[in-house]
Design a protein around this nucleic acid. Structure first.
Lengths: 294, 294
DNA sequence: TAAACATGATGCCCTCCCGGTATTACTTGA
DNA sequence: TCAAGTAATACCGGGAGGGCATCATGTTTA
């Protein structure tokens, strides 16, 4: 079995791609670090770093192992905290993941509600994209997620928290803002568009493509975070489809316009959790929030 | 930071609730195990086991920490397996580029074959013209391309996947369709022609120019995609030289006629890959497909 | 009631692992 | 061809960890 020191060593080298600098960061000298990595590779049974005498780079296996190593280190550093909390008489704690966009709207009220139901429970909050939340729920690093479809209903139970409309963010000085009517697809046929990333923000991407006629040649940026989109709109880079809750951001120089086409409130936010989760604090919370499993 | 040995020690004691038996299970003696647990409790900062001189039991913190410890051990034992599988190419990621035309014919069977060889490898597919594929292979954004010559054989290895004939696409109502014989060059001397783009579809362009006497004054459209060509033929804009696999498109109102002149099966499709590529999944795939480098 | 037993903790020794220093091997760029 | 940069190797010393012996303490038994 490898050691945690070997893992931190590997992570440092993988990040620096340089044994000397990595060693410095770890407050040690380069030779023992080299040996740590060699030993780690031996126990793992695969070459993790390709090192030519001039440069260091990760192999495919190394990249995969780096992920696992990071996860291990995160888990290892959290474990004692968990144990101490419980030892100090708390009733447990809940780890909740949320998407940045849900932070604008539902997160505050929800936390208040949770605080009323389980006041003696510590809440860890982490901002994560839906995919990371699902990963976290699967590995048990997360108890509850605030995420958007799709997710595997065989593994997860969910509860629809919130529906909202999609609006169009435009620079405040933009001529569309003077139209005084809902925006139609054809209004946008020559507008530079800031679009959601089809991989990182798949839900919004699919929704926008489904409900609006997107001309991909108009896409000037591909972005994964709503906040970034609104900032880019404020910088007059183009217009963007954002959920209504983004209007609460209070970024100056942006107007939000209603959209004519499509469904009324197509943007969904769900609370999701692992069907097999047994964290007592979560069980209690779900019961008292009356989230029927569906 | 604690060590994995301390964790296994703790798990053993927590399961046996007896230091002596736990030590035996771990092939060690009891005293060092006692010290391991003490040290672990010190680094965790909480008492994990309540030990009265007669019996051992878990504290609340101990139960919580046991969960985390088990999770850590599971993750730690899985990580090397994952890394090894990726290093051996049985697991991982393959990014495959294909031309639209190859999508009609060889792509399906090829993917099936790939799925049989490396079932646990995720396949990303991207429709790209040959030039973009070559670019992607050079930058490492693509592992394998299904493309047409020419490409730089100093950088790329390739394997001929498929040869096919060229046929002439004509509107179904066209008089040439009634000839009941192979089409000769002189049959086309007054036909409006939908031609391949000399830049975007250089391979087809060069092929057609080499094998057939093209009268450039007859060219009514210059197109880069086979599908577009066939659609234009269906719209009676002219006739077009297309690879035989285009007959599988099933577009109504188009007939495909054999060509008399030229070689039997001049249209080639190659699998190409970067000679220096090290993606283990690719290496394994190439080996098992018996694509000799040539 | 006292002796035997069970069991976890402690003391001490020894080995081996790990880190540091010095050096080597190799590549690259001037 | 030489200087510089960088990872690997050689060698050494200190400390962590395991084993053996023993202790401390509580429980069972005669």
């Amino acid at each position: 079995m490898f050691t945690f020191d070997q893992l931190t060593g590997f992570i440092a080298v993988a990040e620096e791609l340089h044994f000397g600098r990595a060693a410095e960061r770890l407050n040690m000298t380069q030779p023992p670090l080299s040996r740590q990595i060699q030993k780690l590779e031996k126990t793992v049974g695969a070459e993790l770093l390709e090192r030519d005498n001039r440069r260091v780079e990760l192999t495919a296996a190394g990249r995969a192992f780096l992920d696992e190593a990071r996860r291990l280190m995160a888990l290892a550093s959290r474990a004692p905290v968990t144990a101490r909390r419980i030892a100090s008489g708390r009733q447990g704690h809940l780890r909740i993941g949320f998407t940045a966009a849900s932070g604008f709207s539902i997160l505050g009220p929800l936390l208040e509600e949770i605080g009323a139901i389980v006041p003696d429970v510590d809440i860890d909050l982490q901002e994560l994209v839906t995919g990371e939340q699902i990963q976290g729920l699967l590995t048990g690093e997360l108890d509850l997620g605030l995420a958007r479809p799709p997710f595997d209903t065989a593994v997860f139970d969910s509860h629809l928290l919130y529906r909202e409309s999609m609006v169009l963010a435009v620079p405040a000085s933009h001529s569309l803002a003077d139209l005084n009517r809902d925006i139609r697809n054809e209004d946008l046929k020559d507008e530079p568009l800031i679009m959601h990333s089809p991989t990182q923000a798949r839900y919004f991407y699919d929704l926008v493509v489904r409900l609006h006629d997107i001309r991909h040649e108009n896409v000037v940026h591909t972005v994964s975070q709503i906040l970034t989109m609104v900032s880019l709109v404020a910088a007059k880079r183009g217009v963007a489809f954002v959920p209504h809750s983004a209007t609460a951001l209070g970024i100056r120089g942006v107007s939000f316009l209603r959209l004519a086409s499509g469904e009324e409130e197509p943007v969904e936010l769900h609370a999701i959790w692992n069907r097999d989760a047994k964290n007592p604090a979560l069980v209690r919370l779900l019961r008292d929030l009356e989230f029927a499993a569906n």
